[in-house]
Computed example of a mutant assay.
Amino acid sequence: MKNFAAIGALAAAIVISAPADAATAKRGSFGKLPDGRVVASVTLANARGVSATVITYGATLQSVVLPDRVGRRADVALGYDNIGDYLAKPQYFGGTVGRFANRIAVGRFRLDGQSYQTPVNNGKNSLHGGTIGFDKVLWEVVSVKNGPVASVTLRYVSPDGDQGYPGTMTVDATYSLDEKNNLSIEYVATTDRTTIANITNHAYWNLSGEGSSNGAMGHVVTIPAQSYLPTDDGAIPTGDYKPVAGTVFDFRRARAVGDRVRDARDQQIVWGRGYDHNWIIGTKVTPTEHLMARVSDPVSGRGFELWSNQPGLQFYSGNFLDGTSSGKAGKIYREGDAIVMEPQIFPDTPNQPKFGSARLEPGQTYRNIMTYRLTTGQPAKR
């Protein structure tokens, strides 16, 4: 018995002496849906004052708290502080969007000679999977881990025929945070029948703070892309690859979002009411991540590099935030108050063979990994 007691004391000592700077994952509750199901939350936090909260409704990134250059913390991700607002005024704030993120022309595509119709919910087109996409369903928590890398994995099983898409698709969304301020989101999906997949995260960023009056038009952006996809007036790509050189879409050198976001001389800007386009970072999904964008806020010193394995970056300048939603700080969200950067394959790929393929076959694994290398403007700890 003494030996067992000694072993127990040793185990307790090991737990107590675990590194104080290990990242943590803490479970919580975010309320209930009208049918009584509980919406869970998991907050990932590290010793540098960075945290990220994920809720199971929509596998949503509900909050990202980041210190500024003098250590003041602020939530830099737009969203709500209660489930009721996510239900009443959905705006994709931090949501996981799919099965097919972005737009499909007239909501229709063909696979192996068969036509499929998805809900039309954005003018005459389908957006972010349809009327009840992945951002509007309850996911389940399958794993929560502490350690050098804290993480939570959520799962949703989308049945055959869901929103018109073929095949039963099983999707895992893993959010992780480490002590180097790397916030990663990984989507993995499989199917039992040929289908299409394009899953990403729709976080809205205001690095001055989601309740700040500064907005995001002063954020300085770099996108290492030589070309982008022009669209028609419904935001469907025309199929052309247009060079960014000499246009308002040239972010190869860092410049503020607001420099030319209202330039009415460019019809693309007029149609989109700002930026809502896909930049071509590569031609296909790659085995490893590559740089998609850099974003910095000169006011607070906060910023991030975005890395992903995807070929396209949808950059949206918050053009349709219309002052009808108020966020966690009790301030309304106005046009230009945040920006969105979504790594993905190109919009309308199922209808445009030039863009590659969106097919996912049984036995294959879809994977989209994105990492926000967050910066605070503070010197790194030694």
Rank of each mutant, 00 (worst) to 15 (best):
residue 6 A to E: 14
residue 9 A to F: 12
residue 17 S to E: 09
residue 20 A to G: 12
residue 24 T to M: 12
residue 24 T to D: 10
residue 27 R to I: 09
residue 32 K to Y: 06
residue 42 V to N: 00
residue 50 V to D: 06
residue 56 T to G: 01
residue 67 P to D: 11
residue 69 R to C: 05
residue 76 V to C: 06
residue 77 A to R: 01
residue 83 I to Q: 02
residue 84 G to W: 04
residue 99 R to S: 08
residue 103 R to F: 05
residue 104 I to F: 03
residue 109 F to D: 03
residue 118 T to R: 04
residue 120 V to K: 12
residue 134 F to Y: 14
residue 134 F to G: 06
residue 139 W to M: 08
residue 143 S to W: 00
residue 147 G to P: 06
residue 153 T to A: 00
residue 153 T to Y: 01
residue 155 R to N: 06
residue 163 Q to E: 15
residue 167 G to D: 03
residue 176 S to G: 03
residue 184 S to K: 10
residue 187 Y to H: 11
residue 198 N to P: 00
residue 198 N to Q: 13
residue 199 I to Y: 00
residue 203 A to E: 08
residue 214 N to S: 11
residue 223 I to L: 07
residue 236 I to F: 06
residue 238 T to S: 14
residue 244 V to N: 05
residue 245 A to K: 15
residue 253 R to C: 00
residue 254 A to P: 06
residue 257 V to Q: 07
residue 260 R to I: 00
residue 266 D to Y: 08
residue 278 N to V: 00
residue 279 W to H: 01
residue 285 V to S: 04
residue 288 T to E: 15
residue 290 H to N: 11
residue 300 S to Q: 08
residue 317 S to P: 07
residue 320 F to A: 09
residue 325 S to C: 11
residue 331 K to Q: 14
residue 339 I to W: 13
residue 342 E to C: 07
residue 343 P to T: 03
residue 347 P to Q: 09
residue 347 P to R: 01
residue 368 N to C: 12
residue 369 I to G: 10
residue 371 T to P: 07
residue 378 Q to C: 02
residue 379 P to Q: 05
residue 380 A to Y: 05
